[in-house]
Structures are given as structure tokens and as C-alpha cells.
């Protein structure tokens, strides 16, 4: 068995909506190995995004344990969790979520502003990340001057620039045409296979899931065996 980077035990998340309680995750236990490209599938409301958010440290469970590299992220306070996210997690969202007033270069540089790296080191890293996603020549373009696929690749570069162990992607191809989607998925696959990054991706699309090394299904907050 490969070394797990994420260890989840009895993880539950219950949302209280007035008097009604909605169980998004129900006592889930899961191990994710280093370098794995895991895809989370399931219908809307099955809890896959909630699970991804908890692993990435942007949401908290109601109960259970979620350890990433031996750190129980559910126990970290908000400030420590922010530092942990900056150093360990790269985010890719469905709607790209680039800052519209910043160039591709500046968007990628953004997470590095929280580090102690100097200007030259930041520049080298940003150029390397943009080069890896094939956008080295578009670094001074604003998001509105890029296509959807290019925007998503900039978002991948932003997720990579801090050299995190874990990359989480929430339906990264949901807003892309099939060609752009393939490009993005290939980059994620490359990151997992060549760079040893652990990629966790939420998707509805079985074709996208086929790029992963393992696929798990959730339904009504439970893992399907």
C-alpha cells in the first residue's frame, strides 16, 4: 500500500437549515495516496464538493478526523489553517476565479506574496509555473484577454506556484469546451504522474474521471463501495 497523504476517518458534515438538518457527509473513511489522481464523482448534493472543501481546509466537518500529511486540519485555528493552505494546497475552481485586474503573471504571483521569497525568486517561480501550463508568452495578458481554457491553465499555474503537495480541483472542466477540457486534464494528469502531486478532482463527467488513477463515488453523503 502506498503512503497515504490524506487519511479520513468517520468524517461527517451536517448542515442545519432552520429546524431541518441536512447530512452532507455521513461517517466517511478514506485514504488517498501520495501522487494519486483521485476523482470524486456523484450526483449533485452527494457531498463530493463538501468532502473536497474539508480536505482542502476551507470547510470544517461536524465530526470525524481529516489528516493531511499527519496534520489534523480540523483542529487548526483559522490563522494556522490559512498558512497551512498557502503552503500545502493548490486550488482550481470551475469558474477559474482569477482576479480580473491582475495580469496572468500577477494572478499566479498572488499566493507567493504571503511567502518570504524575494522578487527575483518569485519571478522565476511564476515563469516556471506559467511555462509548465504552456502560457509563458501570455504572462502580461489580463484574464479577459485569455480564452476559458487559458484562464483555467493560469489558475492551475497559480495552484502550482507554491509547490503544494496537494492539488484540489472542483469541476475544473465544467466551463470549458471539450478540447480545452482535455488540455487541462492532461496537465493535471502530468502533475500527478510526473511531478508526484496528489490531485483530487470533483467531476460529473465520466470522460474527465477517466484521466484519474482512481475514482470514487458518493451518494447522499456516503461512499459507494
Amino acid at each position: 500500500m502506498a503512503v497515504p497523504i490524506v487519511t479520513i476517518r468517520n468524517l461527517s458534515k451536517v448542515y442545519a437549515q432552520g429546524e431541518i438538518q441536512v447530512t452532507a457527509l455521513d461517517k466517511i473513511s478514506l485514504d488517498i495516496s501520495v501522487g494519486e489522481f483521485l476523482t470524486l464523482m456523484g450526483p449533485s448534493g452527494s457531498g463530493k464538493s463538501t468532502l473536497l472543501h474539508i480536505i482542502a481546509g476551507i470547510d470544517r466537518p461536524t465530526s470525524g478526523e481529516c489528516r493531511v500529511q499527519d496534520v489534523d486540519v480540523t483542529k487548526l485555528n483559522e490563522s494556522k489553517l490559512a498558512d497551512w493552505r498557502n503552503q500545502n494546497v493548490g486550488f482550481i475552481f470551475q469558474t477559474f476565479n482569477l482576479i480580473p485586474v491582475l495580469t496572468a503573471f500577477e494572478n499566479v504571483e498572488l499566493p507567493l506574496l504571503l511567502t518570504r521569497l524575494g522578487g527575483n525568486e518569485r519571478k522565476t517561480r511564476v515563469q516556471a509555473a506559467l511555462g509548465l501550463v504552456g502560457l509563458g508568452d501570455r504572462s502580461h495578458h489580463l484574464p479577459k484577454q485569455l480564452s476559458g481554457g487559458q484562464e483555467q491553465r493560469v489558475a492551475i499555474a497559480r495552484a502550482l506556484v507554491t509547490d503544494p503537495k496537494l492539488i484540489v480541483a472542483d469541476e475544473p472542466t465544467g466551463n470549458l469546451d471539450s478540447n480545452s477540457a482535455q488540455d487541462v486534464l492532461k496537465v493535471l494528469q502530468l502533475l500527478s504522474r510526473e511531478a508526484g502531486k496528489t490531485v483530487i478532482m470533483v467531476t460529473h463527467d465520466p470522460k474527465a474521471a477517466a484521466f484519474g488513477s482512481r475514482s470514487i463515488h458518493l451518494e447522499k453523503g456516503e461512499l459507494l463501495k
Binding site: S79, A82, R85, N86, Q87, L110, P111
Partner: peptide, 16 residues
């Protein structure tokens, strides 16, 4: 608001 949430996700703290 959405952008500020992204910044939080990237590791920016509340005080920042």
C-alpha cells in the same frame, strides 16, 4: 466577495 473568498482560500488571513 467571491474574490476575497479566493484570497482566503489561497492563504490570506482575515487581518490581511
Amino acid at each position: 466577495f467571491r474574490e476575497l473568498a479566493i484570497l482566503k482560500a489561497l492563504g490570506f488571513k482575515r487581518r490581511e
